[in-house]
């Protein structure tokens, strides 16, 4: 039991390391530098070179990376040369926004997709199933940068139910917070609903065809009891895996929606830092997202043992 877990954690650490190395390498290929951004268009080449030297950006790439890594493993992600803000403080400030968006979107997607999948799987090929599949196809093919403006147009501009942009922290009231979060969370959730629904529908149809389901029905159990007690649980492994992967992805991948709605989340922080070539901030945020991503996935992998007795038994043999 201990060895597989340690091996899984070791692999995760390697992934994080490779991701941060790749980020540094990619940013070094991009034109422009944070020194040019700080000094602005009036800068002379000499003043840019002097600032690069002061920030240590004239050092070889591997040296810069090792310096950063040595501090990062001690928990010091450094400070942005552009804003002076510490990377950890910036992450702590932005994480609640992104986390709330991701969790809200995921919860919305899970609730809606489970309901839709159950309806679809009860009578595959029925008009209801075909209708849900059609809607699901639409959701799947409409990216967030289309869904977002459409939601804004109808629900914010025409009906005035939600703000067009901006974020209200939960400290300013739950109502205001939910109003500012609901549209962006919905824009994110639409695609997730479609993919979750398709996956669960397929698994449910498969499970409903199993002998033990037929046996349960033969014992006189109701259709809904069999669905929720016997079919849904074994059909949800793929869904849990996907939800876990997507939660990690959403934490670092809500850039477009955060930009569309001007939300102060990790995605916006990352996008603006990349544009400004703020390597320290980008490295820190990416490392954090990578840790979170592989952490969530590791937990999902380990959770199989809790959900499925067969895996527990297989591991103990």
């Amino acid at each position: 039991m201990v060895f597989p877990v340690a091996r899984r954690i070791g692999r995760s650490a390697l992934v994080v390391l490779l991701v941060t190395m790749a980020v540094v390498a990619l940013l070094s290929l991009a034109p422009g530098s944070v020194a040019s951004v700080i000094l602005g268009e009036n800068a002379t080449p000499e003043s840019v070179a002097a600032l690069n030297a002061r920030l240590g950006l004239d050092q070889p790439l591997w040296s810069q990376y090792l310096d950063w890594l040595a501090r990062a493993v001690r928990g010091d992600l450094g400070s942005s040369p552009l804003t002076g803000q510490s990377v950890s403080a910036a992450i702590a400030e932005r994480l609640p926004v992104t986390l709330q968006l991701a969790v809200m979107a995921l919860v919305m997607a899970l609730i809606v997709s489970v309901l839709l999948a159950v309806v679809s799987a009860v009578r595959p090929g029925s008009p209801a199933d075909r209708g849900i599949n059609a809607v699901s196809s639409v959701f799947l093919s409409v990216p967030a940068f289309i869904a977002g403006p459409l939601l804004v147009y109808f629900l914010a501009l025409q009906l005035g139910w939600f703000p067009v942009m901006g974020w209200s922290p939960i400290g300013e009231g739950v109502g205001a917070n939910l109003r500012s979060a609901l549209l962006p969370a919905t824009a994110i959730a639409l695609t997730e609903i479609a993919s979750f629904h398709r996956l669960l529908r397929t698994d449910l149809i498969g499970t409903l065809g199993e002998d033990f389901v037929g046996a349960a029905r033969a014992k006189g159990m109701s259709r809904s009891y069999v669905m929720f007690r016997h079919a849904l649980r074994p059909s949800s492994f793929s869904l849990i895996t996907l939800a876990g992967i997507n939660l990690g992805r959403l934490i670092g991948g809500t850039v477009i929606v955060e930009s569309l709605f001007s939300l102060p989340g990790l995605g916006q922080l990352l996008a603006s830092s990349i544009t400004a070539r703020d390597v320290i901030m980008v490295q820190g945020v990416v490392a954090f997202i990578a840790v979170l991503y592989v952490g969530v996935n590791t937990l999902v992998d380990l959770s199989y043992r809790l959900i499925d007795p067969r895996i527990r038994k297989a591991a103990s043999v």
Binding site: P31, L39, A43
Partner: peptide, 13 residues
Amino acid sequence: TVDSSEIAALYTR
């Protein structure tokens, strides 16, 4: 198309 971090360098050079 160039992004904002390149503007200063473009002007400088």
